Amino acid sequence: MSEYIEYLQEVFEPFGPVRARRMFGGYGLYHDGLMFALVVDDVLYLKADHHSRGAFEQAGLPPFEYPRNGQLVKMSYYQAPEELLEDPDQTVVWARRAFEAALRARSGNRPRVQT
């Protein structure tokens, strides 16, 4: 596990326990069995949806994008604000926002991933 992932697990301690799993050349961050964040190239992205996307856009935070078949594909994850890393209160606010988006995205019958 990378030093950055270990650092993020410490940063998220005020929010609660966070587990990391390698995926697609990055990591997924999980809380209570749900992926609420993505780390690619040591950049943290948080889960967003139509309820929370405005907070990310208002802060000028870009979505996670990757190239596929000659086009950029946007995912429902947005770059985390710097204050999340510096202020435990902001860590909890932004982490809760991302976790709630993950809860809303979860289908009723799909099993939760154990980490």
Results as ranks from 00 to 15, higher is better:
residue 25 G to Y: 09
residue 102 A to P: 03
residue 9 Q to S: 03
residue 114 Q to H: 14
residue 90 Q to W: 04
residue 88 P to G: 01
residue 59 A to K: 04
residue 92 V to N: 00
residue 7 Y to S: 04
residue 53 R to A: 15
residue 81 P to E: 05
residue 76 S to A: 10
residue 7 Y to P: 05
residue 96 R to I: 03
residue 8 L to P: 01
residue 60 G to A: 11
residue 68 R to L: 11
residue 112 R to T: 15
residue 105 A to D: 09
residue 87 D to C: 13
residue 9 Q to L: 02
residue 28 G to C: 00
residue 62 P to L: 10
residue 68 R to S: 11
residue 102 A to I: 00
residue 76 S to T: 09
residue 109 N to K: 13
residue 84 L to W: 03
residue 34 L to H: 03
residue 113 V to C: 05
residue 109 N to D: 13
residue 46 L to C: 11
residue 104 R to S: 10
residue 64 F to R: 08
residue 67 P to H: 07
residue 8 L to E: 02
residue 36 F to G: 00
residue 14 P to H: 05
residue 24 F to N: 15
residue 104 R to V: 04
residue 12 F to T: 01
residue 71 Q to C: 11
residue 38 L to Q: 02
residue 96 R to E: 15
residue 88 P to D: 02
residue 114 Q to W: 12
residue 20 A to N: 04
residue 45 Y to K: 05
residue 10 E to L: 09
residue 74 K to T: 15
residue 63 P to N: 08
residue 55 A to F: 12
residue 95 A to F: 04
residue 114 Q to D: 15
residue 3 E to K: 11
residue 78 Y to E: 01
residue 102 A to C: 01
residue 70 G to T: 13
residue 33 G to F: 06
residue 34 L to C: 04
residue 70 G to R: 05
residue 49 D to C: 05
residue 115 T to F: 14
residue 20 A to W: 03
residue 85 L to S: 02
residue 19 R to L: 13
residue 70 G to A: 09
residue 97 R to P: 09
residue 105 A to S: 12
residue 51 H to Y: 13
residue 65 E to I: 13
residue 52 S to C: 03
